[in-house]
């Protein structure tokens, strides 16, 4: 199956939108484990990058993006335009990352 084009712009250069399928979305709530939380706590004392949480959030964004693409595919779209990420805290040391955009069908101009 052809890859879904994902862009943050409203249009895809070289393509024209022929059909709007709706909002494609994908979300995930991620937490790391207690051991990493403790290590992150130490890093918080010392300062500098908290790699444990950098990795956790990066993984969460990746998962949310893939889920949004999967959703767009299921809707019959071949592109997502105006894609955005949203994030919020769900609980202590848990973050939700949500990816959304407009699922569309595009054709080459």
């Amino acid at each position: 199956m052809e890859d879904v084009i994902v862009v943050t712009t409203e249009e895809v250069p070289g393509y024209r939108v022929v059909e709007v399928k709706g909002i494609a979305r994908g979300g995930v709530v991620r937490a790391t484990h207690l051991g990493r939380d403790i290590i992150a706590g130490f890093r918080n004392l010392v300062g500098g990058e908290v790699r444990e949480y950098t990795e956790m959030m990066a993984e969460a964004r990746e998962i949310a993006l893939q889920r949004m693409i999967q959703h767009a595919r299921e809707m019959g779209a071949n592109a997502v335009v105006g894609m955005r990420f949203m994030t919020s805290n769900v609980g202590q040391r848990m973050a939700e990352v949500y990816a959304f955009g407009t699922a569309v069908v595009v054709e080459r101009e």
């Binding site: 484990h33 207690l34 051991g35 990493r36 403790i38 290590i39 444990e52």
Partner: peptide, 10 residues
Amino acid sequence: KFAELLLGMA
């Protein structure tokens, strides 16, 4: 793996 050592302790 210090983080996993700590997890095992928990």
